[in-house]
Design a protein around this nucleic acid. Structure first.
Lengths: 211, 211
DNA sequence: GGATGAGTGAACAGGTCTGTCTGTTTTTCT
DNA sequence: AGAAAAACAGACAGACCTGTTCACTCATCC
């Protein structure tokens, strides 16, 4: 029932990240290099010179494509978000069953994410935590990213006939964020299963309410 | 019995942070200033000069007390953790009722925390997100901090006669971390109540299991 | 085959960073 | 009051930071 046939042969980079896309243009190489460095060593802590060294480009090339470091960070977050969503929703689409099954299955996908050796937490959570009040650009990008997830959850909630889709969605978001942070800190992917059990309980409640 | 009469007249800083403690020694002033700056503007993004400016000390004084910036960050996290726990567990102690009431009441305390204008998320979550793989010192300090919370929850779980205290604790940790991150990102303290509702459901389940 | 546009390498400007050092002043303890 | 410890202001070193500029290479396409 799961796509467990092809996911094991080529582990050069994280499939949920844009790091695995073969970079052709200089811009792509910059984004890929910056993404890896920013996410692993921190946005502020990584210098431009390190980025261009890893990308193998000239500094002028970087500043031709991105007018500032902030713009590069923004581009990295955008690209990383797109790649992650492409992978994540692709996985979600392969889950068979009704809305409940799909919702529960999401946490198995999350666990797959957490289990990858290059899992460093959610780049958006980390970015907002790093800059916080300073620059709300990153908070906006993060919110845009999370909106895709909220929309997906809300659709499930409505499909299920949840009593309060809004509140239901909020509860699920708490499970996701909590699982991400707990797994990141404890380096223990199985927090996805803890969250999944809680969600199963939430689904139980909805069923009982409907009955 | 407690000094709860005088806590409302002077709101210059957050009561859950060590920023409100009147700094006497130069070391205290450094910690207080560094704490505010690091947590608001980021650890890497805040320079030493900014810290000593805000603390009103000489740079030599800083390096006499802390041998490096990393050591200062570590001291800030330690102090911030102590102040937070002092406030938080103090609030928890005032909750009347049995273990279930105390557990649920915790989320009201969390909401109070989230509601403060200076709430910038959990410094430990932010620090681990910022440095991640680079320096595991911060991860260690964060884990030590979280351990107090885990111990408290686990005691409640055992007192309640939870079927699996370990797993119960993990589920609660997910609720806390999730509420923190969701509240921080959406700037919406009421995520504490969403988490609280989920915990109420978990308690329901334990009661039903016991019956 | 010559123009065009993208990329290169390297130097440079101007700041800011961490961390050190010196000499002076203030506080504290006896 | 006098000695000792602590904190002060500020200059300094040396590295690193972001961002700019310039001259050059090389592929592609008309």
């Amino acid at each position: 029932m799961l796509n467990d046939t092809d996911t094991s042969c080529a582990p050069p980079a994280a499939v949920w990240s844009m790091s695995h896309t073969e970079p052709k243009t200089a811009r792509d190489r910059l984004i890929v290099a910056a993404s890896e460095l920013f996410c692993h060593k921190g946005f502020a802590a990584t210098g431009i010179d390190t980025v261009i060294d890893h990308a193998g480009t000239a500094k002028a090339t970087l500043y031709k494509h991105f007018h500032s470091k902030t713009e590069l960070i923004e581009a990295v977050l955008t690209a990383e978000g797109e790649a992650w969503r492409k992978w994540f929703f692709g996985q979600l689409r392969e889950i068979k069953g009704g809305p409940q099954d799909r919702l529960l299955g999401m946490f198995d996908v999350l666990e797959t994410w957490f289990s990858h050796p290059d899992f460093y937490g959610c780049p958006f959570i980390n970015a907002v935590g790093e800059f916080d009040t300073e620059d709300q650009v990153f908070r906006r990008v993060a919110d845009h990213h999370k909106d895709f997830l909220r929309t997906w959850i809300r659709a499930i909630a409505i499909e299920m006939g949840a009593q309060d889709p809004q509140e239901f969605t909020r509860a699920i978001v708490v499970q996701i964020d909590g699982a991400i942070v707990a797994a990141q800190h404890a380096r223990d992917p199985s927090f996805a299963q803890s969250a999944k059990s809680v969600v199963a309980l939430l689904l139980d409640q909805e069923v009982r309410r409907a009955a």
